[in-house]
Design a protein around this nucleic acid. Structure first.
Lengths: 235, 235
DNA sequence: CGCGGAATTTATGTCGACAAATAAAATACA
DNA sequence: TGTATTTTATTTGTCGACATAAATTCCGCG
């Protein structure tokens, strides 16, 4: 709606438009700038980016393939809804992927992997220190993504990425309802344990920590949801 | 290359062309009619299907999103290679998904799910009886897919589908090198055990059977590969 | 005869326009 | 006034054509 983007007009490399639109829309969706259910209009996007509908369309097809938007035939395409009814399947898969990727990272990581993981952990620590919520969510994602990459299994990596993305929307939705306790600090502690287990190549410990971390996250989110629901009813 | 398709020219519903092209190319890729590395030419496809390049392109974008084709910028797009170097990651993920989906099916299946599963099992049995290899591969896939659907977790379902597809290419590649023993009969027995465990809602048994089934499949494929490799060296 | 650069070729990326399908608006009718 | 039907409007799906980038060929020169 807001014409917030520079047309960035002429100086586009020949294949870059699609990726740019794709990444920007993706971020906007995951940060809830485009809330679930919003209508995505090809023509508006075309004008906004100063390009034809064709590359826009291509980006939309990719987003649809990942389930981030739903497109009804011959009619509008909209940002996909969050499926609260089946959240437990999300939590189930998320837990499993946390465990599997952390285990594999403990098994297969290289020194460079470990460096990268630690860098993202420090970045997360910084974001926590200045209470930058968007940054916290982003660096948290990067941290776990780096662990998954160290596990060197592209199948797990792609499913996990998708789950982390959906999780990003959930976090964004409930973050402001202020999780209980000092959550960022607890996450930081758990992240440290995770890195330690990976560095020690202790697979059992890695599994243990990953599972505890997942359980904790899920409990927090569920608590936030039920609290939120109760407020809905009160209104 | 072969102009094997009817242009099916005029009478296409407005949004159907894309799905048709997508599904046909997908099948051709998975059945190795389009072997890994083949060049996919938009213009040829457009002529062959009697439509413009635009819908062809859309189908190709979807296929690329699933990793079935690779597209180098400004240059040709080709059917993606089978990554033999990292086959173990494929086997790892496949085993895990066999186990998880079978467990969940045991937990959440409905009577209708069980009917469907049993129908596909019988279909597989029939294909085995007449030694129809393509049919065996297809019905085998449908059988496991039905189990995953009964598990009601779309994240697992989508990863599992992707793995089954890649497996379809592998099977197609090695099937004719005649697996050891009476493999179809063994698969049939294991499928029966799987259905029994699911029907009994015995999660532990389901897990056990799924794991054994996966191990057995993987062993067969690995054996076929090493045999094949040895032949290569001999030549 | 071999090599480096310019022209040609070929397939892709992008565009603007038209056609079809659906939703919304307007009109007719009871 | 309410409902059914036609008309309009908007947005998507498709098309043919042009622009551009890489690969190939061709050509001159050493």
């Amino acid at each position: 709606m807001t014409a917030s983007e520079m047309p960035a007009s002429q100086d586009r490399k020949r294949g870059s438009g699609v990726r740019m639109v794709y990444e920007l829309l993706r971020d906007q969706i995951l940060d809830l700038e485009l809330p679930p259910g919003s209508i995505v209009d090809e023509i508006q996007l075309a004008e906004r980016f100063g390009m034809s509908r064709t590359p826009i369309r291509e980006a939309l097809v990719r987003l649809a393939a990942e389930g981030l938007i739903d497109t009804l035939p011959n009619r509008s395409t909209m940002v996909s809804q969050i499926d609260f009814a089946n959240l437990h399947t999300f939590f189930d898969a998320l837990t499993l992927m946390y465990r599997v990727t952390t285990r594999l990272a403990a098994e297969y990581h290289t020194p460079e992997d470990l460096d990268r993981i630690r860098r993202y952990q420090r970045a997360y620590e910084e974001r926590c220190a200045v209470n930058d919520e968007i940054g916290m969510i982003a660096t948290n994602r990067q941290f776990h993504h780096a662990i998954a990459e160290a596990g060197r299994n592209r199948y797990y990596l792609s499913l996990f990425s998708r789950l982390l993305d959906e999780g990003r929307r959930l976090l964004r939705l409930y973050y402001y309802s202020s999780f209980e306790g000092d959550m960022p600090a607890q996450w930081l502690r758990e992240h440290e344990q995770m890195v330690a287990a990976i560095a020690a190549r202790d697979i059992a410990a890695a599994d243990q920590v990953a599972r505890a971390h997942a359980d904790q996250i899920i409990r927090q989110i569920q608590k936030a949801i039920t609290r939120d629901r109760r407020q809905d009813i009160a209104i």
